[in-house]
Simulated scan of single mutants.
Amino acid sequence: MIDLKNINRRRFMGLAGMTAAASMVPWKVRQALAATPLPAVKEEDAIIGFGHVGPISDEGWTYSHHQGLEAVKAAFPKAKYLEVENIPFSADCTRIYRQMVSDGANMIFSTSNYGDLIYEVSDRATDVAWFECDGRRPADNLSGYYIQHWYPTYVVGIAAGLLSKTGKLGYVASFPVPSVFSGTNAFLMGARTVNPNATLQAVVINSWFDPQGAKQAGTALADNGCDFLFGIMDEAAYLQVAEERGIWAAMWNTDIRRYGPKAYVSSIVLDWKDYYVEQVKKRLAGEWTGGEETLLPMGKGIDRDAWGERVPADVAAKADAVRDKMLKEGWSPFVGEIKDAEGTVRVPAGHRMTEDELYNWDWSIEGVSGLKV
Rank of each mutant, 00 (worst) to 15 (best):
V335W: 05
D127H: 12
A319G: 06
G68S: 06
N106Y: 08
T126M: 14
S57P: 02
T153Q: 10
F334H: 00
V203I: 15
V280M: 09
A35W: 06
G291R: 04
I87C: 02
A20S: 13
I158W: 03
G144M: 04
I232C: 15
L188G: 00
D116F: 09
W130L: 07
T62F: 05
T126V: 12
M189H: 06
G104Y: 15
D103E: 14
I147E: 01
V101D: 02
Y146H: 14
L229M: 14
Q31K: 15
I48H: 03
E43S: 12
L284G: 00
A186Q: 07
M18W: 12
E309P: 02
N253Y: 07
P178I: 13
R9W: 11
D274P: 06
D116A: 10
L221M: 04
L33F: 10
A202N: 01
K80S: 10
Y154R: 04
K325L: 11
D271Q: 13
M233T: 05
I158D: 01
Y154T: 04
A321D: 02
A198G: 03
D271P: 00
P55L: 13
L296D: 00
P26K: 11
E85Q: 12
W361E: 04
M18I: 11
E309K: 15
Y114D: 03
P88E: 13
R346I: 06
D303F: 06
Q216P: 02
E278A: 11
Y264T: 03
P196D: 02
S57A: 15
N8D: 13
G115I: 04
K372V: 10
S332W: 09
A32C: 11
A237P: 00
R98K: 12
I338C: 06
I87T: 06
A341R: 15
D324M: 08
I268K: 13
R352F: 07
M298I: 10
V335K: 05
T289C: 05
S164G: 05
Y63F: 09
P178A: 11
I87M: 10
